[in-house]
Amino acid sequence: MLLNPMPNRRQSETFRLPVGEAGKEQTFFVTLGIVSVGNRLVINEVFLKHGKEGQALDAICDDAGIIISKLLQTGFPVADLCPGISILPVFDAKTEKCQPASILGATLQLIATEQQVLDKCCGLRSSGLGLETIANLGSD
Rank of each mutant, 00 (worst) to 15 (best):
K70R: 15
L124F: 12
I134F: 08
L88S: 02
P7Q: 13
F47Y: 11
L71Y: 00
I60L: 03
I43H: 07
I134D: 00
N8A: 12
K120N: 10
T27G: 02
K24S: 13
I60E: 06
L118F: 08
G65E: 06
G38L: 13
I67K: 14
P18T: 08
E132Q: 08
S102D: 00
Q26S: 04
E21L: 15
K97D: 14
R9E: 10
I87T: 08
E25Q: 14
I87M: 13
H50P: 03
G54H: 09
G51V: 05
C122A: 11
P18F: 06
P18N: 01
I66C: 02
C82E: 09
L108P: 00
T113P: 06
E25F: 02
S139L: 14
G128N: 11
E132Y: 06
N8F: 10
R16P: 04
L124T: 03
S69Y: 03
A93T: 06
Q11F: 02
S86E: 15
K24W: 14
K24I: 09
I67V: 14
Q55R: 15
P83H: 12
L110H: 11
T31S: 10
V117Q: 05
L57T: 07
I87R: 05
E53Q: 13
P5A: 12
T133A: 12
D62M: 07
L131R: 00
G51F: 06
E53M: 12
P77C: 11
I111M: 05
C121F: 09
C122S: 11
K94E: 15
A106W: 05
S139E: 15
P18G: 02
C121N: 10
D58M: 06
Q115I: 07
A64M: 07
G33S: 10
